[in-house]
């Protein structure tokens, strides 16, 4: 307990630094893009909004909406990744293992191709329904044993359900080949192209999810020491596992619905943050949220410029930025999970 003061001090510094990086990333994301907006216009767009100025409109519509989506989705994916890896005690697990991505993508493609979807906003709900359905299936299969949810089972069930949905999607895309091009960015992930008024009503749910995850963090720490220990300490492990599963599916489902299939954040950010603060979820969860958001914001900025006027899918950038760091951490050989 002696070291704890020092550790807390270090960690608080880390939190401050992380928040600073997040703020900076957000500003950069709003200020820079293909269409050049002078910096003073960026400032004015917030404090003296003029609906007739193209600069201001671009800041308010295009830029703000994508920065907010990137923030929200990055945080949600990273936190659900932390929870997923803890729940399954498998460092390879990512929210995608719950089948949410595959489920969402399948539903999108199905509805786009077979039923005629009339509005883009419908896509968000269709994706969320697909994600939840796949998640519920995986959870159901993974917890059929005597002692409720078992790590190995859920990982296997997730892989099977994901593959199943993925093959349905592939089938639809291969048969209706023109459809592939219409959902390509969706499959590859993207934070742009959503209007602000579509996003705002969804944000409170994400916020609530992150808050609950934070509230549960002491219990998650106990769960980490094993089911028996947790039960011995009087914890209702079954209830906790159900709660975690619902959180994971909810957070990842909403992310997928908002921004499509963005990989890597949910898998890698937890490992990155763990390398600095270890396995204490009171620190791990908030820091993962902050770094997930920052990484996605910065990736989005990069994605605008590499191939302008074309945009690189954001999932590509997260992977290319994240990989070297991830491999470095893997080599450093910090104990995981």
């Amino acid at each position: 307990m002696l070291i704890s003061y020092q550790a807390v001090g270090l960690r608080s510094g880390l939190v401050l630094l992380s928040l600073l990086v997040l703020l900076l990333s957000f500003v950069v994301s709003v200020a820079f893009g293909q269409y050049t907006v002078p910096l003073h216009s960026v400032w004015d767009a917030f404090w003296q909004y003029d609906p007739n100025s193209i600069d201001h409109v671009i800041i308010h519509t295009t830029r703000m909406s994508r920065a907010i989506v990137a923030c929200a989705v990055g945080a949600a994916l990273a936190v659900s990744g932390v929870l997923m890896q803890t729940l399954t005690r498998n460092p390879l697990a990512s929210p995608a293992i719950f089948g949410v991505n595959a489920g969402a993508v399948f539903f999108i493609v199905l509805f786009a191709q077979v039923f005629s979807v009339t509005t883009l906003n419908d896509y968000i709900w269709i994706a969320f329904v697909g994600a939840s359905l796949a998640g519920a299936l995986v959870y159901g299969l993974g917890s059929m044993g005597h002692d409720g949810l078992s790590p190995v089972r859920i990982v296997l069930a997730g892989a099977a359900i994901s593959a199943l949905f993925m093959s349905f999607t592939q089938g639809l895309l291969v048969i209706g080949q023109e459809g592939l091009d219409s959902v390509l960015f969706w499959v590859a992930g993207s934070v742009s192209g959503r209007e602000l008024d579509t996003i705002l009503p969804i944000l409170p749910y994400l916020g609530a999810g992150l808050f609950v995850a934070l509230l549960l963090s002491p219990h998650i720490n106990i769960l980490l020491s094993g089911d028996d220990v947790a039960k011995g300490l009087g914890q209702n492990t079954l209830l906790l596992k159900v709660a975690l599963s619902v959180l994971i599916i909810g957070l990842a489902g909403i992310s997928v619905a908002l921004a499509g299939n963005i990989g890597f954040i949910g898998l890698v950010v937890p490992h990155m943050v763990r390398a600095f603060v270890g396995n204490d979820h009171k620190w791990l969860i908030p820091l993962a949220a902050v770094w997930g958001a920052s990484l996605l914001l910065l990736s989005d900025v990069v994605s605008r410029f590499v191939l302008a006027p074309e945009e690189v899918p954001i999932g590509v950038v997260t992977a290319l930025i994240g990989t070297p760091f991830f491999i470095y951490l893997a080599r450093k050989g910090r104990k995981h999970g």
């Binding site: 269409y35 005629s116 009339t118 509005t119 219409s182 742009s192 302008a308 006027p309 074309e310």
Partner: peptide, 30 residues
Amino acid sequence: IKLKTKEALPSINADVFFVLFDQEDGAVQQ
């Protein structure tokens, strides 16, 4: 070129636009 963001619009400026899409698809229309 595939354009994702509306900020790229100035790069396709021309005297005339021929727009084509699958009119039966509501999402495309929107």
